[in-house]
């Protein structure tokens, strides 16, 4: 347990720069939109402020996959010579991924809730509970993409050749499994990407459960991938 905490602290320390940098960037972007939105066409500001949210799953996927790379091969080798279970290492990276995604979606959504009334010139009363629901849904859902991506990486490491392809296939298959089993929620997911006006926010509340469901699904897939990885690669 103490080892997990140590690994977590180290991951956070390493990601510190990225978190602060990306956070400032997002704040700047949303701030700019906030100030300029009244002068834009109705609704445009709202759309623009949402756009970064679309990139969250993508960023999550890329981050998840690349974080498991050996950035410096020698440091990775050395860590593996220590009595530290690989699951803990992967888990610590997953937790930091979740943390980062939550921060980024938090910043984006918070700005959206501020920008919406200005951009659409309608009276919207953003209430805290709805914000929380949407935030957690997006955050955990977005992190779920990252977890799937990490799982894909682990599975690809078990194969000697065409690793990228195998990882990609694993990722797509997992997504398809989820969307198939949860067809109705899949619909909400599609709707969410295109929400434009504040009444649609209600639909997002309902879709909030989607985020949680997807997150749990991604944890299951990641755990499976870790098991496969350990059987094949573990010393």
């Amino acid at each position: 347990m103490k080892e997990f905490y140590t690994l977590l602290k180290k991951e956070l320390r390493e990601e510190r720069g990225w978190i602060i940098g990306a956070g400032i960037f997002l704040l700047g972007l949303e701030g700019y939109i906030f100030f300029k939105s009244p002068s834009w066409e109705r609704g445009a500001g709202a759309i623009l402020s949402i756009l970064p949210l679309v990139s969250v799953p993508l960023v999550s996927v890329i981050w998840g996959y690349s974080r498991l790379f050996a950035r410096e091969r020698n440091t990775q080798f050395f860590i593996f010579s220590l009595p530290v279970r690989k699951e803990l290492i992967i888990l610590s990276k997953a937790v930091v991924l979740l943390f980062e995604i939550l921060i980024f979606t938090g910043i984006i959504l918070f700005s959206v809730f501020l920008i919406l009334p200005r951009a659409t010139k309608e009276l919207v009363k953003p209430d805290f509970i709805s914000f929380l629901k949407v935030w957690l849904s997006y955050g955990f859902g977005g992190a779920g993409f990252g977890f799937l991506s990490m799982g894909a990486y682990l599975v690809s490491r078990c194969i000697r050749r065409v690793r990228g392809v195998v990882g990609f296939i694993f990722f797509i298959i997992s997504l398809l499994i989820y969307l198939n089993f949860f067809k109705s929620l899949g619909k909400f997911f599609a709707q969410r990407i295109f929400y434009m006006v504040r009444d649609k926010i209600k639909e997002i509340y309902i879709g909030g459960s989607f985020g949680g469901g997807f997150f749990i699904f991604s944890i299951i897939i990641l755990s499976l991938a870790i098991l496969i990885f350990k059987r094949r690669m573990e010393v």
Binding site: K10, E14, E72, R73, N74, T75, F77, F78, S81, L82, P83
Partner: peptide, 15 residues
């Protein structure tokens, strides 16, 4: 691994 320590080649410590 609990009872051994390894000094490997290259830069094994985080920069």
């Amino acid at each position: 691994k609990r009872k051994l320590a390894y000094l490997g080649e290259g830069d094994t410590v985080y920069p």
